[in-house]
Design a protein around this nucleic acid. Structure first.
Lengths: 247, 247
DNA sequence: GTCTATAACCGGATAGAC
DNA sequence: GTCTATCCGGTTATAGAC
């Protein structure tokens, strides 16, 4: 749509606001940063900030997206280094933590809403679906590019399960107060082999029924029985962290 | 301290405010209920509501406490019925869900903050410690009163691990949109046997090192390496859901 | 120590003019 | 797209009454 440069005026403004916001969040924390501050730092009016971001929360979703892009860049072709499943998984998760490190406190906000089924910020929300899909696809790459042979019960769901594992690591990281988050890296190194072993034994006759059941319950969560999911709605951020939209 | 009746005037007022708040939360949701509404419904001035509850959030903590008391009452001597571990665990978790059922939406607020290490509302916060302790003690009762024999690696930490399992179930429940939350009850019935089996195999030579490692990492989270934990501070609710206190 | 009433502050969000 | 003015609600402050 743009004639020459690929960043329209609007995109530039949007970036400016996001930059200002992330900078303030990082130095002052999320709660102590006001939309007025953000607008001022970006050199725009408050109303204009809201023109680009429906709410303060939406800035976090934008951060999430940018962070994912960063991760992709850092990860780059690092995965090409090995075909060993454990090593690949370890690389992905470690680089994920690396790239999010400057924003550890801000990242808690994401998990703060993860538990809220109605928050658009939740990694499980429809609004986050595209991003979640990309993250899971990345996990699929970890599996597919490896020499690992997966049992058929697990094949379809393994990437998503691994993504849940990744979420668990990040949850730990967010709480991790050790120097340089050393505990988190230790956790990764300790648990990756366990995950590997679990995937290995999942096909054993004693374990298989359990795996089937667990995977089945996952499916139920994905497809709510009372489901509505307004097809058109996406990432418009009509409501914040709390209850239903109303005002 | 009171002469005759065991509820002083202040306690009555406090209850009145809490009743009004929970009622409004249940019918309108948390976000759409204002402190002004609560005060009016309770027949007090806004300032008075804040005299008893330092913040809107603190009302949720109070709800949490009341709900635990309800659970205790409902559970009553139900545990005396059997010495079978799985049955006891199942009873505890099912009754927990039962007693919280009318406040499912409100309960999400708790989990919304569970992931935030700094929220006083988090089940893991120092402010919630007394309540958490009671819940874990209840779990210990489930174990101790049963015929289950626990391996020594696990003995000390099992109640806490089971409490984490209970938290997991509640997290599922909060997201569960099935009719009457039938899926949650199904989840309990399916997973309790798995938990039972896991406890059983924890002492096997192949598994034991894994158990040790996992329990060790739990300990690390409990005792943050950079720990401060101001000893005096408790349940005063100086800050809300967000970052550090400041104002 | 318990409580009322009222005004004010602050920050997220919105309306509507340009 | 961008601005200014305004609303709304959590929270605080004040000043005084039982």
């Amino acid at each position: 749509m743009e004639p020459a440069g690929r960043t329209s005026k609007g995109e530039q403004t949007r970036e400016r606001i996001l930059d200002a916001a992330l900078d303030l969040f990082r130095t002052q924390g999320y709660a102590d940063t006001t939309m007025r501050q953000i607008a001022q730092a970006a050199g725009v009016a408050v109303g204009n900030a809201y023109y680009y971001f429906a709410s303060k929360d939406q800035l976090i979703l934008a951060f999430y997206e940018r962070n994912h892009a960063d991760h992709l860049a850092v990860l780059g072709s690092a995965l090409d280094g090995t075909k060993e499943f454990g090593e690949r998984l370890r690389t992905l998760v470690r680089t994920k933590v690396d790239s999010a490190m400057p924003y550890r406190r801000l990242s808690t906000k994401l998990f703060t809403s993860a538990a809220d089924p109605e928050s658009p910020l939740s990694p499980f929300s429809p609004e986050s679906a595209p991003l979640r899909g990309e993250a899971i696809a990345l996990m699929a790459e970890v599996v597919d590019g490896s020499s690992l042979r997966v049992g058929k019960d697990l094949r379809d769901d393994l990437p998503e399960l691994l993504w849940l594992y990744e979420m668990g690591v990040i949850l730990y990281w967010v709480h991790d107060s050790s120097e340089g988050c050393a505990n988190t890296y230790a956790l990764i190194d300790k648990t990756v082999p366990i995950v590997e072993r679990l995937v290995g034994i999942a096909k054993l006759p004693v374990i298989r029924p359990m795996v089937r059941e667990l995977v089945g319950m996952l499916d139920e969560l994905r497809m709510p029985t009372t489901g509505e999911l307004p097809v058109g709605a996406r990432a418009t951020g009509e409501y914040g962290l709390d209850d239903a939209p109303k005002r």
